[in-house]
């Protein structure tokens, strides 16, 4: 059963140096506050997994939390590049970042395999691209029934997956709706999981298109209103487009970034 705890306690307990950590949320419900808590607790050597690394991964990489990134698209959506990510890849600052690069279809299927308890997933993917030549976790496989050549990608089973959802009840059952991305698969594939929620309620009212993760499939729940900011939580908050634009000059400049990092670490309130 998922225990409801504070965000700081949940991160301290669940996220350890050297872990494989997946923060998921496909531009909606991004668990940004949890990412900032990982930065504050100065975790290191993490293998960060995320289909769409955006601002919060730029911040984690710039803060030196990551050793490796497994991903399929890294950018500041609607704005441009992630300059901390680029600085790490191109210049090894603040430390070298190993990358393992896939397509969205490949990453989504890796989580599906992980959630299904299978060692790998099969898809019609990567054909003719250079990705297979630079990424060792893309292999060819022959269908035993038709002889078709297909791509195989290994399951992702993170040590801990972290997502943000709209609500949980007091027993720790979690409800989310809107664009639900790959969050369910990420949680079910992981050894441990943390869900931050907008609010904890007495009873979960059904919502159109909503999904529920039963309490017994989640390790810890933390109530963090606004925990997806600057992304949005459908029914609770709007996307803060200004933040995405304002991140660009901070991200471009190491000194500006370090000021941001110091503020985030000391005040607990990222500006």
């Amino acid at each position: 059963m998922a225990e409801i705890v504070s965000l700081a306690d949940a991160v301290a307990e669940l996220v350890r140096d050297g872990d494989v950590v997946a923060l998921e949320g496909f531009t909606h419900l991004i668990p940004v506050a949890a990412g900032h808590e990982i930065i504050r607790q100065r975790r290191r050597d993490l293998t960060l997994v995320r289909m769409t690394p955006d601002i919060v991964y730029d911040q984690l990489i710039g803060a030196g939390c990551a050793r490796k990134l497994i991903f399929s698209w890294g950018g500041n959506p609607g704005v441009g590049s992630l300059h901390r990510f680029r600085d790490a890849v191109q210049n090894g600052w603040p430390e070298p970042l190993e990358i393992e690069e896939h397509s969205h279809a490949g990453m989504a299927n890796r989580y599906v395999a992980g959630a299904s308890g299978l060692p790998f997933a099969v898809l019609r993917g990567y054909t003719g691209t250079d990705l297979a030549s630079v990424t060792s976790t893309i292999k060819q496989i022959t269908c035993p029934f038709t002889g078709e050549r297909l791509a195989a990608v290994p399951a992702i089973n993170a040590d801990v997956s972290i997502i943000h959802a709209q609500r949980a009840d007091r027993a720790g059952n979690v409800q989310l709706w809107g664009l639900v991305g790959v969050q369910k698969e990420a949680v079910l594939a992981a050894k441990r999981s943390l869900v931050t929620v907008e609010e904890v309620v007495d009873e979960l009212e059904p919502v159109d298109g909503g999904i529920v993760l039963p309490s017994w499939a989640v390790t810890r729940v933390a109530e963090v209103p606004g925990g997806a900011h600057p992304s949005y939580a459908q029914g609770y908050s709007e996307r803060d487009n200004g933040y995405y634009a304002e991140w660009d000059p901070i991200s471009r400049d190491r000194a500006e970034f370090e000021k941001w990092l110091e503020r985030t670490r000391t005040t607990g309130v990222p500006a």
Binding site: T52, F71, S72, W73, G74, G75, S81, L82, F85, R86, V89, Q90, E101, H102, S103, H104, A105, L123, R124, G125, Y126, T127, G128, T129, L131
Partner: peptide, 15 residues
């Protein structure tokens, strides 16, 4: 220059 990467494009272009 490191660009954002593939996203969904490889399989969109294929299928």
């Amino acid at each position: 220059v490191r660009l954002p990467g593939a996203g969904g494009a490889p399989e969109i272009a294929a299928s």
